[in-house]
Amino acid sequence: MAERARRVPRWGGPVAVVSLAQLFGTSLWFSANAAADGLKQSWGAGPADIGALTSAVQAGFIMGTLALSLLGLADRFRASTIFVVSALTGACFNAAFAWIAHDIATAALLRFLVGLSLAGIYPIGMKLIVSWEPARTGQALALLVAMLTLGTALPHFLRLGGQALQWQWIITGASVLAVAGAWLIHRLGTGPHLPPARTTRASVLSAFTIPRFRASALGYFGHMWELYAFWTLVPLLVAATGLAAHFPRFGVSGLSFSIIAAGAIGCLAGGMLSRRIGGAAVALGALTISGGCALAFVLGWQTLPKGWLIGVLMLWGASVVADSPQFSALSAQACPKDMVGGALAIQNALGFGITMISISAATALFDSLGPGAVWLLIPGPVAGLIGYRLALRPA
């Protein structure tokens, strides 16, 4: 343990290092969305095409998390090794998307491979957090998911700061960051607070027989119906509601970054609040607020003043992801320690399967309904709240 501690960089503890690596690694996730304008000019890509590229990443992520969980890989190999390999391969596939792909079909294949790589970054990053800070899982995961949120928003920031650059260089910037994340985890290693690697093949699906795990998973699934579809729609909503024209200094990229990045503040605030009122209260409260924001937006996007409308989107951006680390922490605490990696991976796999449906449906509806397509996101928070309560009812 002492030897491991000497490997931690002096400028931060393990949670800070893992969270920064997560920020860099997950910048790969929405890099295509930040390049939407360039893809439109180069390939004539429309909203449905951007949705297809995002769904390809989700499909790859699902396949990767299923393999990690059902084959027991997440709990049979060192978490740091999986993270490093995944970040490096994801960086390569992302760069290939920027410089080799010349049409939507090829791009979708490469984005699928990026998603496959992300399966070894996001859930494994959560396992790394548990391996270093098991006693502060909720607050530590809040920092981790805050970095995931910033990583999601980061390509929009890169786009904002590099308006004169070709879209390919914006994508490449995300790959460079992912390589930096791999280096950080290589330096850090895996923490000492997990049992030895599993040698048995007990089904990870048995975690769903645990009422507390099942409740947090159902809440997480409702949250996932809304989250990634919202993140995908943000630049489209900003453009279609005239917000970019009303705030020209920010434009689509600046406002999109601000709205998505607000989720990092929501995660950190939720993490601190969870120490006082508990993770379940924070998760359910955030889910309620985000559902309310979705309803307020869809009812008022045509009539609300622009200042109020951006306020709704900022609050929505802050609350839509604040429940994620708390649901994940509740799941990690509910299942046996030797099943943490696989249980979180299978929860992620099913959750991201749900996102594929909501992203595809929302982007397809956007072509015909415009911002009114947001109606489709509201059932997610409602179902998550109901599912959580029902799962904890006595049999």
Rank of each mutant, 00 (worst) to 15 (best):
E3N: 08
E3C: 13
A5I: 10
R6P: 01
R7H: 11
V8Q: 06
V8N: 01
P9D: 10
W11L: 11
G12V: 07
G13W: 05
P14M: 04
P14Y: 02
S19H: 11
L23M: 08
L23Q: 02
G25N: 13
G25T: 02
T26E: 15
S27I: 07
L28A: 12
A32E: 02
A34E: 04
A36E: 05
S42Q: 14
A45I: 06
A45S: 12
P47S: 04
D49P: 09
I50T: 11
I50P: 00
L53I: 07
T54N: 15
T54K: 03
V57D: 00
T65W: 01
L66A: 05
R76Y: 05
S80P: 05
S86V: 03
L88I: 14
G90D: 00
A91M: 09
A91R: 01
A95I: 06
H102M: 14
A105M: 12
T106P: 15
L109A: 13
F112D: 01
I124S: 01
I124F: 06
K127A: 12
L128E: 03
I129F: 09
V130M: 12
A135V: 13
A140L: 11
L141A: 07
G151N: 10
L154H: 00
L154P: 00
H156S: 05
R159S: 15
G161I: 06
W167V: 01
I170H: 04
T172W: 09
V176I: 11
L177P: 00
L177F: 13
H186D: 07
H186I: 04
L188G: 00
T190P: 05
T190G: 08
A197W: 07
S206D: 09
F213K: 03
F213Y: 05
F221N: 00
M224H: 14
L227V: 07
A229E: 04
F230A: 03
W231N: 03
W231S: 01
L237Q: 08
A240I: 13
L243A: 08
H246N: 10
F247I: 10
S256G: 10
A262I: 03
I265Q: 03
I265G: 10
G270Q: 09
M272C: 09
M272E: 12
L273K: 02
S274N: 11
R275L: 14
G278M: 07
V282C: 15
V282D: 01
G285V: 06
I289N: 03
F297T: 00
T303R: 14
L309C: 12
G311L: 06
G311W: 09
V312A: 07
L313C: 06
G317A: 06
S319C: 14
A322F: 06
S328E: 06
S328K: 06
A332E: 01
Q333E: 13
C335D: 05
V340G: 00
A349Q: 06
G351N: 02
G351S: 01
I357N: 08
S358H: 03
I359K: 00
L365G: 03
D367A: 09
G370M: 13
P371N: 05
P371D: 08
I378G: 05
G380T: 02
G380W: 01
G380N: 05
P381K: 05
G384N: 07
L390H: 10
A391W: 03
L392I: 12
L392G: 12
A395G: 07
